[in-house]
Amino acid sequence: MTAALLALADSRLPAGGHTHSGGVEQAIAAGVVSDPRSLETFLRRRLTTSGSTAAGLAAAACRTAGGPRTGAAPAPAGDRVAALRALDREAEARTPSPALRAASRQQGRGLVRVGRRAWPDPVWDDLPAHPHHPLALGVAAAVAGLAPGDAAAAAAYLSITGPATAAQRLLAMDPITVAVVTARLGDAVDEVSAAAVPDADGWLPAGTDPLLDLLAEVHADRTDRFFAS
């Protein structure tokens, strides 16, 4: 099963992630990220806010999609469609920035494109047309035979690796330094994915960083950018 998780979290998976900087391009423009230390701070912010939210949604989508290791009885297809649509609305409510909504749906669509051929399964058809990325990730995990915790781990991990690579390219940073930065965040990634469960109110994580919202909106207005988000 581990191999499927590695494949999902692999930056080589052609799902369009490389054209998104996770806010780091604008963070660099705004002077918030300029060196390894400030990059680590930025990645930690992102991991514990939008990364944690994505992890919760991915785990929930995995559980909803069902599958051998999700611990869920197979739901009737109609119920699954409704449940995934409801989760997509939860993702929308947790992503008030129009630019980040577009970026998430764009990456969700890209992952569906590759995922439905890599792990063929009728459950792909139960997703909305352009699902938020964590939903696509959760479904991919389920049909690849993974558990909700794996989906959360992939979401948490991807929330830092995309922006880390973008920062490395934009600042011409030492790739080994960037690898060190992401490796040092390993425990934090594990903590975030372990906490990707509903709270006492039954609510999934909704961590938000208003700074990321602002950066995303300013970035979307630029015409001189390398990255889609």
Binding site: S38, T41, R45, T48, R94, A206, T208, D209, L211
Partner: peptide
């Protein structure tokens, strides 16, 4: 019944989105 907004903002020492320089 449809969620329109659901966010958690955490501020102050030890909070996630509360790290210098912001």
């Amino acid at each position: 019944g449809v969620p329109v907004l659901h966010t958690t903002v955490a501020l102050g020492p030890g909070a996630a989105a509360w790290l210098p320089p912001v």
